[in-house]
Amino acid sequence: MIVGFLLGVIVTGSLTAAGFFWRFYRQTRDSLFLAFAAAFAIEGINRMAFLLIDKPSEGSPIIYLVRLVAFLLLLGAIVAKNRRVPARKK
């Protein structure tokens, strides 16, 4: 019972964070914000699916595969952001 409640809180927090990052992306068009929005949305949906499974197993490989995709998305966006050469000021 309490596990379901806590998973619901995590889902709500993840999807809320995704919404904020999506809004920041729309304002700035910075792809880093888009990556964070996607990663939080993926994690929120992953936790929601975990909540809907009859007998969930935290050690399931598919759970870790989805999390790996979300974290690699973040890592790739951070690396891409740091590799860009900033425009020179005149």
Score class of each variant (00 low, 15 high):
Leu32Arg: 11
Phe40Ile: 10
Leu51Pro: 03
Gly59Ser: 13
Leu34Pro: 02
Met48Pro: 08
Phe24His: 10
Met48Gly: 14
Val9Pro: 04
Asp54Met: 06
Pro86Tyr: 01
Leu75Gly: 01
Val3Leu: 14
Val69Trp: 00
Ser31Trp: 11
Pro86Val: 02
Asn82Lys: 07
Ala80Lys: 01
Ala39His: 05
Thr16Gln: 10
Phe20Asn: 07
Arg29Cys: 15
Ser57Cys: 12
Ile2Tyr: 13
Arg83Asp: 02
Arg83Thr: 03
Arg23Ile: 12
Pro56Cys: 12
Phe24Val: 09
Phe33Lys: 15
Phe50Gly: 01
Gly13Ala: 14
Leu15Ile: 11
Val79Ala: 08
Phe21Met: 08
Met1Ser: 12
Ala37Tyr: 05
Val66Asp: 09
Lys89Ile: 02
Lys90Ser: 06
Thr28Ser: 15
Met48His: 12
Ala39Leu: 08
Lys81Ile: 01
Lys55Thr: 04
Glu43Trp: 02
Gly59Phe: 11
Arg67His: 10
Phe21Ser: 05
Phe36Ile: 06
Phe40Pro: 03
Ser14Asp: 07
Phe21Leu: 09
Leu7Thr: 04
Ile45Met: 14
Val85Ala: 11
Leu68Trp: 09
Gly44Leu: 03
Ser60His: 15
Phe24Asp: 14
Phe5Lys: 08
Asp54Asn: 12
Ala87Glu: 11
Lys89Phe: 04
Lys90Cys: 03
Ala37Trp: 03
Ser60Leu: 10
Arg84Ile: 04
Ala37Phe: 07
Leu15Glu: 03
Ala18Val: 04
Ile53Gln: 06
Tyr64Ile: 05
Ala70Phe: 00
Leu32Asp: 06
Ala87Ile: 07
Ala41Asp: 02
Leu7Trp: 04
Leu75Ala: 04
Ile2Gly: 09
Leu34Met: 07
Ile2Pro: 10
Lys81Ser: 10
Ala37Thr: 07
Phe36Asn: 02
Gly19Leu: 05
Lys55Asn: 05
Phe40Gln: 07
Ala49Ile: 12
Ile62Gln: 09
Leu68Tyr: 05
Ile62Leu: 14
Leu65Phe: 09
Phe36Lys: 01
Leu34Val: 01
Arg84Glu: 06
Ile63Asp: 07
Val3Ile: 09
Leu34Glu: 04
Gly4Ile: 07
Val3Asp: 05
Val66Gly: 05
Leu32Val: 11
Ser14Pro: 08
Tyr64Trp: 12
Phe36Pro: 01
Ser31Glu: 15
Gly76His: 00
Glu43His: 05
Ala80Thr: 05
Leu7Lys: 06
Arg83Glu: 02
Ala37Gln: 04
Gly13Val: 14
Ala35Ser: 11
Gly13Asp: 06
Leu15Arg: 13
Arg67Glu: 07
Leu6Val: 06
Gly76Trp: 00
Leu74Pro: 01
Gly8His: 12
Phe40Asn: 09
Thr28Val: 13
Ile42Trp: 04
Ala18Asp: 02
Gly13Phe: 09
Ala18Ile: 06
Phe21Ile: 08
Asn46Leu: 14
Lys89Leu: 04
